[in-house]
Design a binder for these strands. Structure first.
Lengths: 157, 157
DNA sequence: TGCTTATATCGTAAAGATTACTAATTATTG
DNA sequence: CAATAATTAGTAATCTTTACGATATAAGCA
């Protein structure tokens, strides 16, 4: 099924309407699925198709999408919230590689933690609904390019 | 060795001084090692032993401690940065369990990801210097207490 | 000791991100 | 069509963090 129609149904199921503004925002997210857009970035992109849209509407819509578990709100330490589309099944099980040299952020869509989550249930009595796993380090191809300095510690892990 | 003296040496090694203000802040962090204090919380606590201290000094000192890899800056999605003491060896390899019902935040100090990190080096050419792993879910003992509602989605994973 | 220079602090102003709020607009219901 | 509810726009207010100028403290040296 068309993904916009699918999301439209999810809105309707919770008595929300997919207004033109909201649809324009959803389309921007779908068109930039690989990125982790900030509110400001969504705002800029959506203005191309909907020039009149207000910033507060972007905030409200992203919050709503989050409530519906369509997107995930994340923070990578650059001072702004970023949003990541969840899969159709609403799970959000992927990992990030963040390179200290080039700043690249790569996504890995496997779920490597099934064993650990079983162990948490067994040993800690804790059942996992979601997780977040980020690795910080360097790509071998970036080695020797020099480090951007220790200021990177200012970013949030 | 005394941990404050140890940290004092680390300051000196980088030509920084452990001023009375900085020492008061370090002591608050050591006395509350189990917590993940925010700047505001550190500020409140340190005022007991150093009532005259300014907020900007707390920001600057925590940034400095971060630069020296003595603390780790983190974000758990409540809108403020939080700080976590690293071990004496400066590594920061532990995990968090975050309960959606009671809000408890538990730390697990094992390193469960050595295998995955080997795999990243092998398959992705990426060498890990640090990682972050948070699990969201519920403790079995919290089940049935009712959920605080889906507003939790507003928090950053 | 006194002078000079660098470092650190204080208090607050400024910046940036997010939320709150009011009026206006659009849709829905009867 | 009138009345009610939902949504949006625009902006003000809030909150966290950073920047800045003045003051204070410490270190180096004649």
């Amino acid at each position: 099924m068309n993904r916009v129609a699918n999301i439209s149904q999810q809105f309707a199921a919770q008595n929300y309407k997919l207004t033109p503004q909201r649809e324009a925002i959803v389309r921007v997210l779908l068109d930039n699925e690989k990125d982790h857009l900030s509110v400001e970035e969504v705002y800029m992109l959506v203005k191309r198709s909907y020039p009149h849209l207000g910033l507060a509407t972007v905030y409200r819509t992203l919050e709503l999408l989050c409530e519906l578990h369509i997107v995930e709100k994340m923070n990578f330490g650059d001072g702004v919230a970023r949003y990541d589309l969840r899969g159709d099944d609403h799970v959000h099980m992927h990992h990030h590689l963040i390179c200290s040299v080039c700043g690249k952020l790569e996504e890995i869509k496997d779920d490597w933690l099934a064993d650990l989550e079983a162990r948490l249930a067994r040993e800690y009595g804790f059942s996992v609904t979601d997780h977040r796993l980020d690795f910080k380090g360097t790509y071998n191809t970036c080695k020797g390019n020099g480090c951007k300095g220790d200021k990177e510690c200012r970013a949030v892990s």
